[in-house]
Simulated scan of single mutants.
Amino acid sequence: MKQKTIGIIAEWNPFHRGHEAMVQEVRARFDDAFIMAVMSGPFVQRGEPALFDSWTRARWAAEGGIDAVFALPVLYALQSADHFAAFGVKLLAAMGAEVISFGTESLDEDALWEAASFSFTHTYQKAFHRALKEGFSYARASYEAMKSHSPFLADELSKPNNLLGFRYTETILRNHFPMEIDVVHRDMNHNISASEARKDLLLQSSGSLLPSRSAGEAESLIKSGHFSDFSRFEDACLLHARLLSEKELSETGLFTEGLDHKWFKEMGNPDYETMLSAIKSKRYLYSRLKRLGARLLLSGRG
């Protein structure tokens, strides 16, 4: 029997015990499979630097059962959920993945295929563009469009892992990839989140939510200062913004709908978080602004 090639799109920021459990479950489902992953590198989708460097995170994943880890280029990682998912799926498809495995909070394969199929209908597209014209954010417009088909699916797709699974499935359909999806339901009663793992490491210097083989190393990296300092990153983003004129901001091509004017107006705020809070709106959510700020910092302008 031909060995199955399984693909996973990940950030592993950091690789914790919940990630390890998912890999073990995929191993149990697909005996003797080759499991590869595309992983966000120095920056993650929420618009921040990863807590630890790419090589360390990739090594922890390999020690946790992944056969090969490939980098998701930074400009692909710093995208909204739909583009992040699309780039990841396309990269895996190009490398021969036959199945994409991922975790969800609740939705199964059938529900995701249903939601993704509906997203290509005229009914969905009409409702989606109407919501955009009414000033809703992309995410809210997607919610309103899906609600016209199924309020249940619309509500469930507001959960982050369900949403990513939907975007993966949507990309497969859009590109006619010969790929299957494999859903691993998260144990929501004993759920471990990457944000909790980072919090434990940063505030308690504790790697208790990480696999035992990497917990000690992670604690040592924190204690020795070998991790990303988010406050310094935010200071760098704010300083870089202040070095650019409004014309230079506009010329980056990162801003639309007059957002460059608003960005320039608010960059005199005392800190980066206050600046973004003054800019955000129902159209430009905080997460979107953080990704934009990271891309601006990496643009090399100024």
Rank of each mutant, 00 (worst) to 15 (best):
R283G: 01
M95E: 14
S117M: 01
Y272T: 07
D110C: 10
P73W: 10
F52S: 05
H149M: 11
D53E: 12
L239G: 06
R27Y: 07
V23A: 07
L221V: 06
F230T: 00
G96A: 08
S220A: 14
L78F: 04
E105R: 01
R301D: 13
K126Y: 11
M275L: 15
V44T: 08
S117Y: 02
F118D: 09
R57M: 12
L298E: 06
D260N: 14
E180G: 09
A236S: 14
Y168N: 05
G18T: 03
S150L: 01
V44A: 11
K126C: 10
S287N: 08
F120I: 01
A294G: 01
T121R: 04
F166I: 05
P73R: 09
A58R: 02
S281H: 01
A86K: 10
L78S: 09
L298I: 01
K4S: 15
H149A: 11
M95A: 11
G96V: 03
S281T: 07
H83G: 06
E25Y: 00
N269F: 14
L243S: 03
F15D: 14
P178I: 06
T56I: 09
L203H: 14
G268P: 03
A194M: 00
H176P: 02
E219N: 03
R59F: 11
K90L: 12
A71M: 14
L91A: 15
A68Y: 13
A278L: 05
A68G: 02
E266A: 13
E266S: 12
R46A: 06
A68E: 12
L298R: 07
N162E: 05
M95C: 11
N269T: 06
G225L: 10
K265S: 14
R174T: 10
E273Y: 10
M39S: 00
E25K: 10
S119N: 05
R291G: 02
H176Q: 12
D82R: 13
A28E: 06
T274E: 13
D31C: 12
W263A: 09
G293K: 09
G268W: 07
E11P: 00
A145P: 00
R27E: 08
S80F: 09
S205A: 15
F87R: 13
Y284M: 00
D110G: 04
D271M: 04
L51T: 03
P73I: 04
E63M: 15
S231H: 14
K265N: 13
E251I: 06
V26F: 00
A115Q: 12
